[in-house]
């Protein structure tokens, strides 16, 4: 029963949503809407559960104080201040706006921007044309960068056309192939889940 009930629920939910997508039957539509509404509630609970779990782990790390616990302390303090300013003071309040605009926004942007430095270093040390495939990748990359940046166009007006050709012909053919094969694979996996052959989503691996 421990396995059969979840498999039956998965199959029922999947079938209702599939029938609704293709046939638009009013009674099925009502059921499908309810199921999707439950999905939203479960997702929201999962998010809340993740927040509580994060708090639990880091509070326990602060309890066993060592030289790394300061990071946990900063995380817990930042989390509580943000939650307090958002829930108690309100999402339109100045402190909440300040936290987002003056702290979170620049920090997240700076964190992402650091990848540019890794990219610059990697382009110098790792992008080597060691074989034909690597050479093709490098040449395509360089042509795309020149075609997409105004400086390339200023150097030679045909660079954007070459970049468009790479994107519209070479990339499109590859992307389409990957897309179609992924879709076929997804249909297969979905059928296995719906029929209960694949039970890996229940946590016990495929059976």
């Amino acid at each position: 029963m421990k396995r059969e009930v979840p498999v039956a629920i998965s199959a029922l939910v999947g079938l209702v949503l599939l029938i609704d997508y293709f046939f638009k039957i009013p009674s099925i539509r009502t059921m499908a809407t309810e199921i999707q509404d439950w999905g939203l509630i479960i997702a929201a609970f999962a998010l809340a559960l993740a927040a509580v779990n994060l708090l639990r782990i880091h509070v326990s790390r602060i309890g066993k104080w060592n030289r790394n616990s300061i990071h946990s302390f900063i995380l817990v303090a930042a989390m509580l201040i943000t939650v307090f300013s958002g829930i108690v003071l309100g999402r339109q309040s100045k402190p909440f706006d300040f936290i987002f605009q003056a702290i979170f926004n620049p920090l997240a942007s700076a964190f992402y921007a650091m990848t540019a430095f890794h990219l610059a270093s990697a382009s110098y040390r790792a992008f080597r044309a060691k074989n034909a495939q690597a050479a093709a990748l490098l040449i395509a990359g360089v042509l795309l960068m020149l075609g997409r940046a105004p400086i390339g166009e200023a150097m030679w007006s045909r660079f954007p056309k070459i970049a468009d050709w790479i994107m519209g012909v070479v990339n499109l053919a590859g992307s389409r192939g990957i897309l179609i094969s992924t879709a076929v694979g997804m249909v297969g996996v979905s059928l296995r889940v719906l029929t209960g052959i694949d039970r890996s989503h229940l946590g016990g691996g495929a059976e």
Binding site: L119, A120, S123, Y124, F127, L138, G141, V142, M145, L146, R148, A149, I151, G152
Partner: peptide, 8 residues
């Protein structure tokens, strides 16, 4: 982009 290309 130019710097990356030169680096490559």
């Amino acid at each position: 982009h130019l710097l990356i290309i030169m680096s490559v």
